[in-house]
């Protein structure tokens, strides 16, 4: 328990450091959001409108850095992340909450499927070392070293097109309005197939490889020989003795990859123009939309920290050696 509290303390500190950096970095970048907004409207704004924009963004008060920092924290605790410049006048929290489900569903589901599938295949490949499954290894090595977005471009080039079943971009048919109905959901699924497949193919290989290698390592442990000598069934030895121990490094890898669900597949979303968080981040970057960038970075930071915490908890549950007595 003491260990656990120490970890929590560590994460709180890390979160504070990340949020503080998140506050300072955009303020060190040269340029001014109002200027970029003015540029966006190509000089159609009057001086009065410009003045009111400065007031609206709080850029007129010339407050001290410290006061701004304190305000920033207050806003975060109120869930107020400011107004987005790109999607002006929508608040950042609204923009993010629109984009987040797309990313969470697409990348989340594919990450989980990829982990489960890759780990199971890895168990089989590691346990039946020397059989035909070894032939899979060069293929998986190849795919695990291919970048997601490159595979995505190839997939669009080969599979998508005007007559193809797979749409090449977007999250749903442009004629539809997002809703939980029989028109929208199939369209959303259809649009997600190609990006999902791309992520799946390039990420499943990593799970297969790492699980297979751990299985091979664990299979030479003494307790595996003992388990065989005990006359346990092959299945029990493979799962409860070999896979159970080989799984440990993979589980922490999985928890960490959960953290990257939120921001990790930026390039895939860009390639497929998928309306997720990564694509939104790209738009924010292009428009110097600081509040939106900060908001997205904040979400990514929190996701990574929560995933790390999950990894710690998973390890505590799975490996008795990490539990301290008392």
């Amino acid at each position: 328990m003491k260990y656990f509290l120490q970890r929590i303390g560590f994460y709180v500190f890390t979160a504070w450091a990340a949020i503080t950096l998140n506050f300072f970095i955009p303020r060190m970048v040269p340029g001014d959001p109002v200027q970029s907004l003015i540029a966006k409207y190509k000089g159609q704004l009057s001086t009065d409108a410009m003045q009111s924009l400065y007031i609206l963004f709080g850029l007129d008060q010339h407050k001290s850095m410290w006061a701004e920092y304190v305000d920033y924290w207050k806003q975060i605790f109120h869930g107020d992340l400011g107004l987005s410049f790109t999607f002006f006048p929508a608040p950042v929290s609204q923009v993010i909450s629109q984009a987040l489900p797309w990313t969470l569903l697409l990348v989340g589901i594919t990450t989980i499927i990829s982990f489960l599938l890759g780990t199971s295949l890895g168990v089989v490949a590691g346990w039946r070392r020397g059989s035909w499954t070894d032939g899979l290894l060069p293929v998986t090595t190849f795919f695990s070293s291919v970048p997601y977005f490159w595979l995505g471009i190839i997939a669009i080039y080969l599979l998508a097109g005007p007559d193809s079943f797979f749409p090449s971009s977007g999250g749903f048919d442009s004629g539809l309005v997002p809703a939980w109905d029989q028109y929208f959901i199939p369209s959303a699924i259809q649009h997600s197939l190609l990006p999902a497949l791309t992520i799946l193919i390039s990420s499943v290989s990593g799970w297969i490889l790492s699980m297979r290698n751990m299985m091979v390592t664990v299979a030479s442990e003494d307790y595996i020989t003992v388990a065989h000598a005990k006359g346990l069934s092959e299945r029990r030895v493979a799962l409860s003795y070999a896979a159970r121990n080989a799984l440990l490094p993979n589980v922490s890898g999985f928890a960490l990859s959960l953290g990257f669900i939120v921001g990790g597949t930026l390039l895939v979303e860009i390639v497929f123009s998928y309306p997720g968080l990564g694509f939104t981040l790209l738009q924010a970057l292009g428009a110097r939309d600081y509040p939106l960038m900060q908001g997205i970075f904040l979400i990514i930071t929190i996701a990574v920290l929560v995933a790390n915490l999950l990894a710690d908890i998973a390890y505590l549950l799975l490996d008795p050696r990490t539990r301290k007595d008392g």
Binding site: E221, D222, Y223, V226, K230, S240, N245
Partner: peptide
């Protein structure tokens, strides 16, 4: 195995499944 012939192995430290 085990019912008729059981074995005690060399590695006392590693013969038990740690988890």
């Amino acid at each position: 195995r085990w019912a008729e012939t059981a074995i005690v192995f060399q590695g006392a430290m590693n013969s038990l499944n740690p988890v």
